[in-house]
Nucleic acid binder design. Structure first.
Length: 486
DNA sequence: TGCTATGATTATAA
DNA sequence: TTATAATCATAGCA
């Protein structure tokens, strides 16, 4: 709202107030004073040269003065000035003035007194609180960083989010600046206008009864008018903040799918901890780190701990809702887990053989990249051969690389059902091999294949304990933490 | 363009 | 505080 509108509003109020005063004066001139009994019990002091008994003469005097006052506005400026001067010098003027002031106070204030002590506007309070909470009003603490931080924390702000966060803060700071500039303008205008009106009233008080209290009241009216304008400013500012916030949230809502590798890692963990798919904070961090590394190589973004939590939350609920749908996926990952564990075990066997002086290790020369197979059948055959010792010689990748190389086994041609059957036989073979390796007797256990055993009859997960580590079966002996070990 | 998958958000309960 | 359940909104695919 512009200053001119504000002035217009204030002028309207002023005019209304002046009308009131005129009406009061009319009533005073026409009724109250005419009968010499002034309301409120205030009697006129005896004018100079009168003994106080000449009632008709005094009435005439007062009537004359009032008439002159009332008609002063109808006269030309010069005429009015002359009249004004004459009135000011009239012998009864001070007495009349004080009486009129008192009457005005008693009538005007009694009517308006109650209105002046308005309770604080709840809407204004709401607006103030909101502006304070958003960091727009009050002392500057980073321009609503608290709100932004809270919003960002909810989404696990990092990477792209931090950019949006700073953008949000910058825009909020802009709003804050505009708000304060406007507020200052309004305050300045309010002060100017108040001074102007006060001067005007003081000037007018020479010719009409205006008491200091009335001036105060007028100032109060002006301030209220201006604060209503301020409320509009606050409302607009709040709206702007709300819009900014919603846009910020919309931006955060924009999602991007995780990379395939990241999803694989998360699924790997989920299905290997099917009886208790609740990663600990450390596990989440480790998973996030693992996924970040994988993703940053491909996409350039990172996955945060919160996103890992979101992922597991979504996964749990969706898995529970539709176990059948996830069966194939579960088989796939169970197979993968089994194969990875087998790799680890085989590596251990290899190491033990290599370390044994009676078992010479020769001919393990095949590189990881050479472990490329086209069909599930050949994979399984090779796996069988690998661990039964009939495949000839090739080296096994170390446990760290093993997982990546194993991912190639999850190609589209690698059907879950088939995997289920094939891998079970592999597992049996592996168990035999592994049983010969000290320390890994129960690395695979009996639950390698997927079954919806993770859920109990109540729909809850069987094992309530949170795994202490994220270490997956692909990482060797740590696989004892996995579901497959249960 | 419609459908499904999926990451994010919100309300609620424990 | 964390998990769940419902929901939203968008990506990706046929």
């Amino acid at each position: 709202m512009s200053f001119s509108i504000c002035v217009a509003q204030c002028t309207d109020s002023l005019a209304a107030t002046m009308d009131d005063q005129a009406r009061i004066m009319q009533s005073i001139g026409g009724v109250s004073l005419a009968g010499h009994s002034v309301q409120g019990g205030m009697a006129l002091p005896p004018p100079h040269g009168h003994d106080g008994t000449d009632g008709d003469g005094r009435k005439q005097d007062i009537g004359d003065i009032l008439h002159q006052i009332m008609t002063i506005t109808d006269q030309s400026l010069d005429e009015a000035q002359a009249k004004k001067h004459g009135l000011n010098c009239h012998r009864m003027k001070p007495a009349l003035f004080s009486v009129l002031c008192e009457i005005k106070e008693k009538t005007g204030l009694s009517i308006r007194g109650a209105q002046e002590e308005d309770p604080p506007d709840p809407q204004l309070m709401r607006l103030d609180n909101m502006l304070l909470a958003e960091g727009v009003a009050g002392p500057e603490k980073g321009g609503g960083s608290a709100a932004a931080a809270a919003a960002a924390a909810a989404s696990g702000a990092a990477g792209d989010n931090s950019i949006e966060h700073s953008d949000y803060r910058a825009k909020l700071t802009q709003i804050r600046q505009i708000y304060h500039t406007e507020l200052e303008k309004y305050e300045q205008a309010c002060n100017e206008f108040t001074t102007h009106v006060m001067n005007l009233l003081r000037e007018q008080s020479r010719t009409r009864p205006i008491s200091p209290k009335e001036i105060e009241r007028m100032v109060g009216i002006i301030h209220r008018k201006f604060s209503s304008i301020q409320m509009q400013l606050k409302q607009s500012t709040c709206e702007a903040v709300m819009i900014l916030r919603s846009r910020f949230l919309d931006a955060r809502r924009k999602r991007r799918n995780f990379s395939k590798q990241a999803t694989e890692i998360l699924n790997e963990y989920f299905y290997s901890h099917l009886s208790n798919p609740y990663p600990s904070e450390e596990a989440k961090e480790e998973l996030a780190k693992k996924c970040s590394i994988t993703v940053s190589q491909g996409v350039g973004s990172t996955i945060t701990v919160s996103q890992v939590s979101n992922w597991f939350g979504n996964k749990r609920i969706r898995y529970k809702k539709n176990i059948g749908k996830f069966q194939e996926e579960a088989n796939l990952y169970a197979a993968k887990t089994a194969v990875n564990a087998a790799h680890a075990a085989a590596a251990a066997v290899q190491n033990s053989q290599a370390n044994s002086p009676t078992t010479p290790n020769s001919g393990f020369q095949m590189k990881d990249e050479e472990f490329q197979l086209d069909s599930a059948e050949s994979k399984n055959t090779l796996l069988t051969n690998m661990f039964t010792g009939s495949s000839g010689s090739f080296n096994l990748p170390n446990s760290g690389d093993m997982f990546l190389s194993m991912q190639s086994l999850n190609g589209d041609s690698y059907q879950g059902a088939q995997v289920g059957a094939n891998v079970q036989s592999q597992v049996d073979t592996l168990r035999h091999v592994i049983s010969q390796t000290a320390g890994y007797n129960d690395a695979l256990g009996g639950n390698t294949m997927y079954s919806p055993h993770g859920l109990n009859a109540n729909g809850g997960w069987q094992d309530a304990t949170t795994p202490s580590s994220v270490i997956s079966p692909t990482e060797g002996p740590g696989s004892v933490h996995s579901d497959t070990s249960n």
